[in-house]
Design a protein around this nucleic acid. Sequence first.
DNA 1: GTAATGTTTTACCAATCGGTCAAATTATCG
DNA 2: CGATAATTTGACCGATTGGTAAAACATTAC
Lengths: 218, 218
Amino acid sequence: MTIPRAAKTLRRTRIQEEKEERILEAALDVFSAAGFRGSTIDQIAEAAGMSKPNLLYYFRTKEAIHRALIDRVLFTWLEPLRAFDAEGNPEAEIRSYIRRKLEMARDFPRESRLFANEILQGAPHIEDELKGPLKELVDEKAEVIRAWVRTGKIAKCDPYHLIFSIWATTQHYADFDVQVRAVLGQNHAGEGRFEDAARFLEQLFMNGLRPRQADTAA
Amino acid sequence: MTIPRAAKTLRRTRIQEEKEERILEAALDVFSAAGFRGSTIDQIAEAAGMSKPNLLYYFRTKEAIHRALIDRVLFTWLEPLRAFDAEGNPEAEIRSYIRRKLEMARDFPRESRLFANEILQGAPHIEDELKGPLKELVDEKAEVIRAWVRTGKIAKCDPYHLIFSIWATTQHYADFDVQVRAVLGQNHAGEGRFEDAARFLEQLFMNGLRPRQADTAA
DNA sequence: GTAATGTTTTACCAATCGGTCAAATTATCG
DNA sequence: CGATAATTTGACCGATTGGTAAAACATTAC
């Protein structure tokens, strides 16, 4: 008598690990390109090179695949923000945060789109993660930035909106890639747009946040 | 013998105008919240308060609804960029462009999400609009910005990435609204976040783009 | 080897999808 | 009014959806 679902077994077999890996990889492709509702189990199964019932042997529902994928990707995704260091030089920290986020937009666009799709459609599956871990992390880093403002190391500004603007500008190059390509046209076809973007954004934020007379006075 | 489709009649009746209006309004609700593939005709029909066959009497396919909606919204959506004036004062023009875009994110979030969904998923229905009218408009305005840079009125920077960064930062407040709310939490619950964002972004871009010694020299 | 367990496939299901059809109903016009 | 055209409805269709059942097949442990 066989126990029907892989989840029931405590010890995971080699095959289980391999197949789950393949499924999550395929699911990232599909979910990031079409969102949760727009994706089908069949698409994921085909991308993973297995039959639908076979896939459902490893993940019982579409939601289970999605949840496993989110859980797996979220931690890595927040890595750059976590690396934001209170002790470091403000200018260098912000600059390297921008660079890291931009590198992630370039190297992991599917992950970016996965979250973008999810949030855009009201975050029905990750509301808790946003209000919990994410908020706490941002609150913590906002406090760091606020301290920098207090000590006059950067211009007076709202730390939350500073973080939002870095998220928005960097992730834009992953999430809205087709638009960026369409507007830039053939002449900027290569990956050069990421270097141009890095140059622009670093300049914008560095000059934009440099402390000015009025700040230290107040 | 009645001609089966509303589209066949040359003269549009009062009822046609009213119903098409209601359908497009409902479609904006549904498409902006779930994307094209994630939306169903039934959802739109229910939101419009009519039966599915009745809706299909006015628009023959789901794509036709979507197309009509895009056509209708796109022009208005580009209005702020079109208003960008070469003759005006650079600082004032950029500042008011940011303000206008932010107002649109606040007042027309559904329109913003409609396009965001579309572009995120590869822009399958608006590729032509991106590569055509949008690109041309951006090219034109980029030239204006480039002229400002040449005459030393603003800092040396890539005009395309400047435009992208304004799009990204302002639309962020519409497209990623749930995340912004989740992170800001209850204490910033009201609409105050838009004013805070406006203050932050104006400061960022004004200071970030102010011409510096090195620019005028080069 | 063989028995137990783990994996895959085939066939299937009910619900939902986009869309059609013809008949019934309502508005418009002379 | 009556006739004609415009609108609405309910019943329906084939395809696709998420998911299941059970048997066939493969692997592992002893």
